[in-house]
Write a protein that binds this DNA or RNA. Structure first.
Lengths: 246, 246
DNA sequence: ATGACGTTTCGGAAACGGCCGAAATGTCGC
DNA sequence: GCGACATTTCGGCCGTTTCCGAAACGTCAT
């Protein structure tokens, strides 16, 4: 660690600020291909073992261990030891939101087909930290906006009065959410280039879908599988037609 | 550039994804102290010349030039040539939002006094891309929330019906904003650890304050100065008491 | 034209950081 | 206790990156 090493220079705006150095430290953590792959893998909100993540990063366990330690130290990851495994996950929703923002910037200026997820299953339905993304996520968001249950814009979103009643009917609880009115956040889907629902609302919708067995996680994947029951219910409840996967 | 270099390995989750590599490329751009200082300087939304930015980064103009070229290439910056100067600015609001997210993560886990802006003027009032931050920004947000003009939560924010009337009265136009209802976005202030207003609403408020001469930019600084008129009007309109700077 | 200034390009030197092999630590199952 | 497994630590190799000096390019002023 070089101790700030300020070089004075005439006519400068502002010398090396310590907040910028912290920014650099955090950004550098995500700025390595191996670490970026680990972070992208953890973006679905689940916890993975060090070994699994070393595979995802394409490096040996020793190397991954160093990366994981560094990211944990930097506050990006949190670790839970369980037996001889160590489960790593994103340290906080703020980290997920930061990665979201970086993915949005990374996807700009590149043709979608060169950037987005390559597999059809990924494009169809996947999780993004704690909510749905892909065509499933975008379709649900579109349907809710069309029905007037939520309002989405670049800057944010809201659940309308009608929306609150709708979600109460469909068994999605938004009333227990602290901070007064329930809100939702738009998350720019980098494969669809469209908004889907993040925030508390997105998380509760996804949780509810898992709970009712409408969708299932695929093993060792970030993609999710819509069950036959789910296809039926998505059509009935949201008016969303889910294509058959594969 | 190494051409993907996949190493196959048994039991792995998912090999090196190209989206993660793009993520790494963007993150690496911000992951260097000199570049992070440049980005932090540009976070106030203005454009600076290459020379000014080299001073802010604490490196020679040659070095800064390379950094600026790289960030422009990566889509983080845009450049406008004007005479013998080249003005660099953040390429898009998405980039500002990404940096916002990184600053929030960078500020977590560090005591505020070790992280935040050091100068009193910075803590008091500064710009954050296109809106106010610091105590000024937080106070305005608090006041609007207390008056019931806006609702803020972790996930987003809204302008209430009463708020729309209030802003119309105070000469802040929100009706010409596309996308139906005006929305606002909470921006976590890393010095105050509190939310202030970003998004269209935050930008319009700041623009209006500059326009009416309530605040002025300080030369060569990211801080803003509240004029005597501004102190009076902030008290009258928002009920916000602005401390005398210095 | 000439000189001053802002900016970029090119060169090489030095430092940093990632990677793996080998080995140590800790945990589970028997 | 003893192997098998998951994970971490240590040491050294090697590629990458950053940095600056020197020089070239473009623009403005005289």
């Amino acid at each position: 660690m070089s101790p700030l090493a300020l070089r004075t220079r005439a006519g400068q705006i502002r010398r090396m600020s310590s907040t910028a150095n912290q920014l650099a430290a955090v950004a550098a953590c995500a700025g390595d291909p191996a670490r970026a792959n680990i972070l992208a893998t953890l973006m679905d909100g689940r916890a993975f073992t060090a070994g699994e993540l070393s595979g995802a990063a394409g490096v040996t366990p020793q190397t991954a261990s160093g990366h994981l330690a560094r990211m944990t130290e930097a506050g990006l990851l949190s670790v839970a030891r369980q037996g001889r495994h160590r489960y790593y996950r994103l340290a906080s929703p703020h980290v997920a939101q930061m990665l979201e923002g970086m993915l949005v910037v990374a996807s700009e200026g590149l043709p979608p087909e060169k950037f987005g997820p390559r597999t059809a299953a990924m494009r169809l339905a996947r999780t993004c930290y704690d909510h749905f993304a892909g065509r499933l996520g975008v379709s649900i968001a579109d349907s809710l906006v069309a029905a007037g249950h939520v309002v989405l814009s670049d800057d944010g979103g809201t659940v309308t009065a009608g929306g609150r009643a709708f979600f109460a009917r469909t068994g999605i609880d938004l009333e227990t959410h602290r901070g007064g009115r329930p809100a939702c956040r738009p998350c720019l889907d980098w494969s669809e280039r469209r908004y889907h629902l993040a925030g508390v609302l997105g998380a509760r919708i996804a949780a509810s879908c898992f709970e009712h067995g409408w969708v299932r996680r695929r093993p060792r994947e970030r993609t999710v599988d819509v069950t036959p029951l789910g296809r039926k219910r998505f059509r009935e409840v949201y008016g969303v037609q889910i294509e058959e996967a594969r």
